[in-house]
Write a protein that binds this DNA or RNA. Structure first.
Lengths: 152, 152
DNA sequence: TGCACAAAGACAATATATTGACATAAAAAG
DNA sequence: CTTTTTATGTCAATATATTGTCTTTGTGCA
């Protein structure tokens, strides 16, 4: 390897570093906010994914992995915990023997309601100081970077 | 708890969810890009923190935790690996017996150079489609949200 | 000066993130 | 139709994330 020192674009590296920091802080403070329910932010995202009306009939593990951008193995372990807690159900897919349908249970809907009650305030505070337009731009940038970094 | 269904602000929750997804994708694809060096994105951020001229004399573990927004325990384990690999050194602080000074070794500087050579391209691709102004706004939003969510 | 409290870094336990591997089922190819 | 290849979800291993805890050291206050 050459001895020439590489200078990274400072703005580029700062974006990635900020993502790293912000994600860490998000999980830490989010989990703290939800600690009374014993729920992590990651579990919230799993439950939230299942609560959408368009997936009322359930989601496959694979679909969830794609949606959440987590690995199959990680999701499987998270689902173990959520199933054990009675919040989700794994049902055999009727069309494909290899596949499962994951659905929210009634208890899952209830805890999600409790979660959202807490997260409402948490989320509001997290975006303080950003206008609605800022927020929408922010989503656009995040989405763009996410897609740019996505490898198949 | 009341039975009334809570409706989250869709923009707010999407910001948090995008952060979650983007962070996952960032670590996965970053680690893939750096796989030939056997370095993770997290280790890169540790090494990067130590390479700044203003911390030439080293950083305490505590300072690094604050800078990186990771826990002391997590950083300690990461430093174990980086020290074992010969990239960082833990030296006793001369003023405070409880404290350590963490410094980059010469090998640490070399691997960091190799890392940055790879990350240069990775970072460039990750921000494709965002103007310089977009990138600067992005940093501003990330910083704002990070600070809003930071609890002491 | 002595005591109470806090800070520093590391050990322990647990949850989440990845890749690798596997058995079963489905799809594709010839 | 048969064989090869791919897909699905889970087990295994490892790295990173957290909180809790501990011992040693340092600080502040009476």
């Amino acid at each position: 390897m050459s001895d020439k020192t590489v200078e990274l674009d400072e703005i580029h590296s700062r974006i990635i570093f900020r993502l790293f920091q912000t994600s860490n802080v998000m999980h830490r403070s989010g989990a703290l906010a939800l600690s009374e329910l014993g729920i992590t932010t990651q579990q919230w995202s799993v439950l939230g994914a299942l609560s959408r009306p368009k997936v009322e009939s359930g989601m496959s593990v694979n679909d969830m992995c794609s949606y959440l951008r987590v690995s199959r193995q990680n999701l499987s372990v998270m689902l173990n915990r959520l199933e054990a807690a009675g919040y989700v159900e794994r049902l055999q897919d009727k069309v494909d023997q290899r596949s499962k349908r994951i659905t929210l249970t009634e208890n899952g809907r209830k805890i999600l309601n409790d979660i959202n009650r807490i997260m409402q305030e948490f989320l509001g505070k997290s975006v303080e100081g950003l206008s609605r337009d800022d927020q929408i731009s922010f989503i656009h940038y995040l989405t763009r970077v996410r897609n740019n970094m996505t490898t198949d």
